[in-house]
């Protein structure tokens, strides 16, 4: 079946991230001078303006900083998912990252709950990092 939702459109700044996703690795840039792990990607560190950067893999565990429960679809590809949950994940050793919480009832979700990564292979080219509650 053809994938009905929007797809990533990698650019020069974030291509490494989507290539990592394809291998089920959650990759972020880390500043070699001040140590800040940053998202969204950028050619310099917003904290110290250093361009010395390494790419690190984070483990895909963290907690829910906040979340929203959609009762209305703004794109037809999401209609069958209603109600669905988007969430900002405060990643252990990583940045705040927007994703989905899956395999849960919206009513059981609370801020600060621990979560772990689940990879969804959406096409041959792309995999999305999503999250589920740690039971």
């Amino acid at each position: 079946m053809v994938y009905q939702k929007p797809l990533p459109k990698p650019n020069a700044d974030d291509r490494f991230f989507w290539e990592g996703c394809k291998e089920h690795k959650l990759l972020f840039q880390k500043c070699l001078d001040c140590g800040l792990v940053r998202w969204p990607p950028s050619i310099i560190c917003p904290n110290c303006h250093s361009n010395a950067t390494e790419v690190i893999e984070v483990a895909g565990r963290g907690k829910i900083y906040t979340y929203a429960v959609y009762h209305q679809a703004y794109h037809p590809g999401f209609e069958k998912d209603l109600p669905y949950v988007t969430a900002v994940i405060e990643l252990d050793g990583g940045p705040h990252f927007l994703s989905n919480l899956i395999d849960c009832e919206p009513d059981e979700v609370k801020c600060d709950m621990p979560v772990e990564i689940v990879w969804e292979d959406i096409t041959k080219e792309f995999s999305l990092p999503k999250f589920k509650l740690v039971r």
Binding site: P8, H75, T86
Partner: peptide, 16 residues
């Protein structure tokens, strides 16, 4: 809808 880093997860609009 043009910001795909949000749109791929279904995050749209101001209300969200």
């Amino acid at each position: 809808t043009d910001n795909y880093t949000k749109a791929v997860f279904g995050q749209f609009g101001a209300t969200s």
